[in-house]
Design a protein around this nucleic acid. Structure first.
Lengths: 329, 329
DNA sequence: TTGAAAGCGGTACCAT
DNA sequence: ATGGTACCGCTTTCAA
């Protein structure tokens, strides 16, 4: 690996000059610039980011925290973050936290030790103050953080839409699955649906659940069909849960969407691959990732602690677990 | 952020001494060690990895290259890599390459600029020599690289098993979907199946495809059922393709698994969530990721260029797109 | 317009 | 057993 000194020697100038042409800072004569660039090319030199980082006390690395990359919702977000960051020559260090505070803390520490210039977090196990004390900008993604910059989808509206679409398509007895109470995003969806359901004239039940895991969801799905036999419409807390419900419905011989309609939330890739394919409320995950990255970059540049919250719109993706609206009415 | 100098001052010793207790190298009196550790605690000091990396010319960062984290097969591998690396206090910088040589080259360069101590690559767009010239150890994952360390599953055996299971379960006319020719792993599976099929007394067709994309696979699936109407068993090149085939079969009213049996490859999380759930040849993706990480760590420690290839066993996961073996016979 | 040199925060050699 | 200090590769004053 050639160093800046090698380049300087080869070009017959000082390292300071090389540094100037590298960073396009200060005055450099055209001829010297040419000579330097030639030397750079010949030596196939590229600057050592570590040395830069040490001097500047900040790298071009971003820390990315997510609960579990294995959960199909997060890769979409992560990919959005990465693409945007790449466009600005930032790279990502990432860590799966499993919603475990210790892991999260751990990763944050090594992020700092590596001079990351900012953090995007899709977890919120740790208290907001932990993040606030960090001295580097943080953006929350898919997490609403009132006092900190964050990017998330309009879950409440999503919840409303889900209820409206089900009602519009003729469901008379709806079961609303309420996701984990500690996740604000899950709560928003729930409240949106509840709002619409409450002011409508359909019957509905609420079923509380405590996770988004498929295994758990399978059990709840069984419960659901035993307890609420009249159910003809289900609003699931997300697509994974909706899938479990769909599975169970099919297993016990319900006809979808004729006897039972199902709406999920997220629109993970899986949803379109199911059979029947899953109608769902789409969160623009990839775009959310990109937005979070953009926001973080702005924070990095401004170096201010702006409290900016970006809410992206959701949309109803009509597939085959809901009836066509014409068919009915 | 406290520095080693702050600690030294607080403990009334030199930075050299602090460094010694930090790294547990050389002699340090018990009492001084205690004083230093106390200072560290009080100042909440943790060493600057960037400075370390600069001096040592190697960091504790690993570069991870994958085609697309959005493809459900890769998160499993990535998670395996991460968990193992975390156990050894390594962190990951990752990059999606989209099988694009330029992106791949680009990431490799920034990996080097950041002093990564090793690379795990799940892509092979670039020539092997590019990797060979790298001066840092590289392990290929889910890619067979004859001259370089790599970890992959026994695709050939997987192909054999798939064919055997289908035959055992009574398929008489099998369509074998051959995946992209440029992927050795896809080829292995194909050849394994071909081998068994050739020496059996069932009829079979081979259908060539050029990608693992679901969109493309949907078209091929349509073709398949038009061209090979007698097909009563399908060996797909992976689970995504199998899903498309399943979708199409259901759409045109085929009964699964009675009229048509389907076997996939990979066992991505999606497979068990389909309805009917997909029988498939499982690659132990998570374990493969961990093995790759272990291998890389060994290479880092030995600092030798060992050419080590680790092949992990595959297994048949019996679900609902294949008939029970008793039912038939 | 250019160069010398201090310093970023560690590590490790050489003395003592 | 401990301290002084050169050095890792770069950036940025400050002088010339």
């Amino acid at each position: 690996m050639a160093t800046i000194r090698d380049v300087a020697k080869a070009a017959g100038v000082s390292v300071a000059t090389v540094s100037r042409v590298l960073n396009e800072t200060g005055y450099v004569h055209e001829d010297t610039k040419k000579a330097v660039n030639l030397a750079i090319k010949e030596l196939d030199y590229s600057p050592n980011e570590v040395a830069r980082s040490l001097y500047k006390r900040k790298s071009r690395l971003i820390g990315l925290l997510l609960p579990d990359i294995t959960n199909p919702f997060f890769p979409l977000l992560a990919r959005g973050v990465e693409d945007e960051m790449r466009d600005h020559d930032f790279r990502l260090i990432f860590g799966n936290t499993d919603e475990d505070a210790e892991k999260e803390q751990d990763y944050i520490q090594t992020f700092q030790q590596n001079n990351v210039i900012g953090i995007i977090s899709m977890t919120n196990t740790l208290s907001k103050t932990t993040y606030n004390d960090l001295s580097i900008p943080v953006v929350f993604l898919d997490r609403t953080a009132s006092s900190l910059p964050s990017v998330y989808a309009d879950g409440k509206e999503g919840g409303r839409i889900a209820a409206q679409e089900l009602i519009k398509r003729g469901s008379k007895c709806i079961t609303l699955i309420k996701g984990p109470a500690h996740l604000q995003t899950a709560l928003d969806r729930f409240q949106g649906s509840l709002e619409v359901l409450s002011s409508s004239d359909v019957n509905f039940n609420v079923m509380s659940t405590t996770s988004f895991s498929f295994k758990d969801a399978e059990k709840w799905a069984k419960d659901l069909f035993q307890k609420y036999i009249d159910t003809d419409g289900i609003i699931a807390s997300n697509d994974i849960v909706a899938t479990a419900v769909l599975h169970e419905a099919l297993r016990i011989g319900k006809s979808i969407p004729n006897e039972i309609q199902i709406i999920g939330f997220d629109d993970i890739p899986l949803s379109s691959l199911l059979y029947p394919s899953l109608s769902t409320i789409r969160q623009p995950a990839y775009e959310m990732g990109r937005e979070a990255a953009k926001l973080l970059i702005r924070l990095i540049k401004n170096d201010k602690k702006i409290d900016h919250n970006i809410q992206l719109p959701v949309s109803f993706i009509e597939r085959s677990t809901t009836r066509k609206v014409d068919e009915h009415v």
